[in-house]
Simulated scan of single mutants.
Amino acid sequence: MRCLQYGIMLLETLTRRNPNEFEGDLSLKQWVSYSLPEAVMDVVDANLLTSTGNRLQKELDVVASIMKVALDCCAKSPARRTNMKDVVMMLQKIKIQLLAC
């Protein structure tokens, strides 16, 4: 799977939104990008969040990190997109952070 497709799939999964839902100049990528990192709660699918309090903030930080990886995969220029080997390594690091919570 190419990085661009993977990034879009991650964004769709984490937001539960379809890229075709947006009109005009706004896209799924832009909507998420404008919301990170401060307003991640506004774009993430609430069904993915299971914690409260301090743990909730840690979950939101992890989701924001994954969304950042997804956005890196969605760069307009193919040369600026993260390669899939690096994506896997970044996601493994995020997984370790999540398990440490």
Rank of each mutant, 00 (worst) to 15 (best):
I94Y: 00
F22M: 10
D45Q: 10
V88F: 02
L91G: 00
T15F: 05
L99A: 08
N18M: 08
V69I: 10
L49P: 04
I96Y: 07
E38D: 15
Q5P: 04
S65L: 05
V63M: 08
M84R: 10
M41S: 10
M84L: 15
M89C: 09
L91I: 01
V43F: 07
N54S: 05
S35M: 06
A75S: 09
N47I: 11
A64C: 09
M41C: 06
A100G: 12
D25T: 15
M41L: 12
E12D: 05
I96H: 12
Q57N: 13
A46S: 15
D61M: 14
M84C: 09
S65M: 08
Q57I: 09
E38C: 14
Y34C: 11
L4A: 10
T13H: 13
V40M: 04
S77I: 06
Q97T: 13
S27Y: 09
L56K: 12
D45H: 09
L49T: 08
S27R: 05
E23C: 11
T82Q: 00
L28T: 06
A64V: 03
Q30N: 14
D61E: 15
I66S: 04
Q97F: 11
S27H: 07
Q30H: 11
S33K: 14
T52V: 10
D72I: 01
K29A: 11
Y6R: 04
T50R: 13
N83L: 06
T82V: 14
L10A: 12
W31N: 09
E23W: 14
I94T: 00
K93T: 11
V32K: 01
V40G: 04
W31G: 03
E59P: 03
L98V: 04
